[in-house]
Design a protein around this nucleic acid. Sequence first.
DNA 1: AATAAATGATAGATAAATATATCATTATAT
DNA 2: ATATAATGATATATTTATCTATCATTTATT
Lengths: 190, 190
Amino acid sequence: MKPSVKDNKRKAILDAATELLALKPTATLQEIADHAQIGIATLHRYFSTRELLLDALALNAIGLVDEALEGIMNDDSDMLRFLTEVFEALIPLGSKMSFLSFAASVDENPNILAEEARIKQPLREAVEGWQTRGLLNAAMPAHWMITVMYNLLFVAWQEIQNGNLAKNDAPQLLVSTVIQGFGASGRSGS
Amino acid sequence: MKPSVKDNKRKAILDAATELLALKPTATLQEIADHAQIGIATLHRYFSTRELLLDALALNAIGLVDEALEGIMNDDSDMLRFLTEVFEALIPLGSKMSFLSFAASVDENPNILAEEARIKQPLREAVEGWQTRGLLNAAMPAHWMITVMYNLLFVAWQEIQNGNLAKNDAPQLLVSTVIQGFGASGRSGS
DNA sequence: AATAAATGATAGATAAATATATCATTATAT
DNA sequence: ATATAATGATATATTTATCTATCATTTATT
């Protein structure tokens, strides 16, 4: 069951491709091969068509998110800790998240749309639980909160790439942003 | 100085093209023409090459944002009102905002990058002022706040398009999200 | 070291997108 | 109503991207 060297290379290609396509969705196969530092012939050996590559990218992203969320259980006791762990796990996957939302909606692939909804389930259930408990604003639609959080994962990833945000600061900043907002800590309303 | 009928059509094409490209950056000229409900020959008459079309899209987006922000002055007295007005003005331009950030970074067009920074200036100055006054969290990087707000403009626009969010609810929801976050209204941090 | 597998560069073929040109039809203006 | 301008459909050419095939070189295996 150990991943072969070929599997590793395949994963490296997928990672590089996702990274580039998240920033430049119109990248050609040649550009993708360059970014992955391989010849275009090799790229074709691993993924015979662009369409197959895109499908593999989506499946890879889903698998990585599943893997990252594995083991992060919500014991319903400590919301901030749970959120921090989720963000720590998912920020490095920012480009994958972004690609997923885009590619899935673009390709209208129902399979991938379903998977995308599935991987959002844990966070959705957690949010709804916290709303019931009065920890989160019950008047705000849960769907909006989820959407915002997943989008901010990509924003954070991008800011890290651009050198505007320290990797280690990102999870806390995200938690603070979504829970408290930008308001001064004491009070916030008018 | 009145816009001619041809200018109006030109703008209509730009609007339709932005809308489509924001959702599907890989759209072909044929798809853009279809979405704008014109023949591809007419599209070529207005914009002779794809590159010229993309440049025009960026310039149009910048002009619309300028126009939308015109007249919204920050009197430094009422942060929530100012933010609400900015969001009311910019949410309908969500697809333009999104296209701008993407196209500019993709094309590496320095002109557009500069304009993009310029249209963010008013909000940046306002945020920094509010931080000084203690209305906003001074420990949070202003750059992060601006980036988040501009990204959420597109998210809100998208949610409206998808039918998940009422147009009239969006500005308030955005203000609430960025100022208070998702926390229950009373208190938020641990 | 010898063998097998994988790679990259390159060339060529196919397919797709973009760009140009023509013409009949529709809309607009006067 | 007529003339002018704009449009859309279509055909064609050109460019670009994708895909396939070949072969020498590099890398891995034993």
